[in-house]
Nucleic acid binder design. Structure first.
Length: 427
DNA sequence: TGTCCACTGGAAGGGAGGGCTT
DNA sequence: AAGCCCTCCCTTCCAGTGGACA
């Protein structure tokens, strides 16, 4: 073991008691602190399914990290638990084993699956086991996918609860035709019943819906408020007790993580990430416990990683647009207009032997960069000098330029020394 | 008050790419 | 192999716009 690259790390004692996933937002604990009311509200709606009837459709709103998904998945687990228990005991009345057994969940994250086809296909495939019977990931006409989905659901009597997480992403990207079909599916089913739970960060997304869809979908609405710092502290303490041995973590560390996350609209996901990354940093430093220094380091690391990840995964042309903005700023031109950014972008494209996209397309790429938080672009009118966007980078200039310059695809299409471009005054 | 600038952003449509059906 | 479907990325066209300026 001696001399092995891992030996230092193997000999150091991990701070986690066991399962690291306890500090991941996807972990569903036995209790969800400060969400009891919403669990009960949703349970009172979903109980209809256990009686073999269709529960009302539900729309759940709330910002990131307010426990929406956790509450829905918590109930899913409870229903599954009930299924297992009911098979052992005999329940009375309409809560019979058969009804409970017929409840099925289908969870779709619309940020991952964001097309009509993809959503229908994924739901349909939850009801087949054989690979050969799966709906292919492309190729079928929409109508056929829908018919197949219907057949599969209606194969036997059941109550299907379809959960569409991040529903606003689907609607803004692909419109409401999936919701239109799914919300009227019950009139076309003979044996089974379908209930929808839509989860969204954005309260206003229903404005994009057809009025019929809106009313069918929003039979019940739940709005999740953000957590405050005290509530976040409870959540973190709860998880910390499960995740760590005593003396590993202090009250002060938990308070700091909660306070930092509370500043960002009470995001529990953020609080958990902070605690998890702090722990990892402390472990890497071979510390026996976690201190506030680790939390500040974790905060920086998470922020940097977010930017890095966002920049690395940008398509090439978006990278060049961002590069053009950063280079111009480096040359003392802040607050650029769309036209100026486009001129810089075109020059970089020409120099690197690429065909530039049209200005219309670049307008969209600028909007996307703005949405990612990499730049700040707001529409401003300069009177006779026209109306345009005023654009500024909102990431650290030097670091981000380095990340873009590391990109192999830019270098390869480029074929010229980027450092020489760096010297060129743009615009 | 009307003009004009420099865009914005919606709509329509082309074409490539992935894959199914006949 | 030909025909079809869906998605994605992109272009083209164009009506609309906020506000400085004559």
């Amino acid at each position: 073991m001696e001399g092995n690259v891992f030996s230092t790390y193997i000999s150091s004692k991990p701070l986690f008691k066991g399962d690291r996933d306890i500090l991941r937002p996807s972990y569903i604990p036995e209790e969800l602190p400060h969400r009891e009311k919403y669990i009960n509200d949703l349970a009172s709606i979903m109980v209809t399914a256990l009686r073999g009837n269709r529960p009302s459709n539900v729309l759940i709103f709330g910002k990131t990290g307010t426990g929406k998904t956790a509450v829905v998945r918590f109930l899913e687990r409870e229903i599954n638990r009930l299924k297992r228990e009911s098979s052992k005991s005999n329940l009375e009345d309409d809560f019979n084993n058969e009804n409970i057994d017929r409840v099925q969940y289908a969870y779709i994250n619309c940020e991952v699956v964001d097309t009509h086809y993809g959503v229908m296909k994924n739901i349909g495939n939850k009801f087949v086991e054989k690979w050969s019977e799966q709906i292919p990931f492309t190729g079928w006409p929409m109508e056929k996918v829908y018919e197949s989905l219907k057949e599969r659901i209606d194969e036997k009597p059941r109550v299907v609860v379809i959960i569409l997480d991040e529903l606003d992403k689907l609607v803004t990207k692909s419109g409401d035709s999936v919701l239109y079909h799914l919300s009227k599916i019950n009139s076309e089913l003979e044996n089974s019943k379908v209930s929808l739970i839509g989860i969204s960060n954005n309260l206003k997304f229903t404005e994009f819906l057809d009025p019929r869809v809106r009313s069918r979908l929003g039979e019940e609405k739940l709005i999740f408020p953000p957590y405050n710092a005290d509530q976040l502290k409870d959540i973190l303490s709860d998880r910390a007790n499960k995740a760590f041995e005593s003396n590993v973590i202090s009250e002060e560390v938990i308070s700091l993580c909660s306070a930092l996350a509370a500043q960002e609209h009470g995001d529990a996901r953020r609080a958990l990430d902070l605690l998890r990354v702090s722990t990892e940093i402390a472990e890497r430093e071979n510390c026996k416990n976690i201190n506030t220094n680790h939390v500040y380091k974790a905060k920086n690391k998470i922020e940097q990683d977010c930017v890095r990840e966002a920049v690395i995964t940008l398509p090439t042309h978006s990278k060049i647009v961002l590069y053009s903005i950063l280079l111009s700023e480096k040359n003392g031109h802040d607050k650029l207009t769309t036209g100026e950014v486009y001129t810089g972008y075109k020059e970089l494209c020409i120099r690197s032997g690429m065909d530039p996209l049209t200005q219309r397309r670049i307008t969209d790429l600028i909007s996307e960069l703005d949405m990612l938080g990499l730049i700040n672009a707001r529409v401003k009118s300069f009177g006779r000098r026209g109306r345009t966007r005023e654009i500024q980078a909102s990431v650290q200039n030097g670091d981000t330029i380095d990340i873009i310059e590391d990109d192999e695809s830019i270098k390869s299409v480029d074929g010229l020394s980027l450092s020489s471009v760096k010297q060129t005054k743009l615009i």
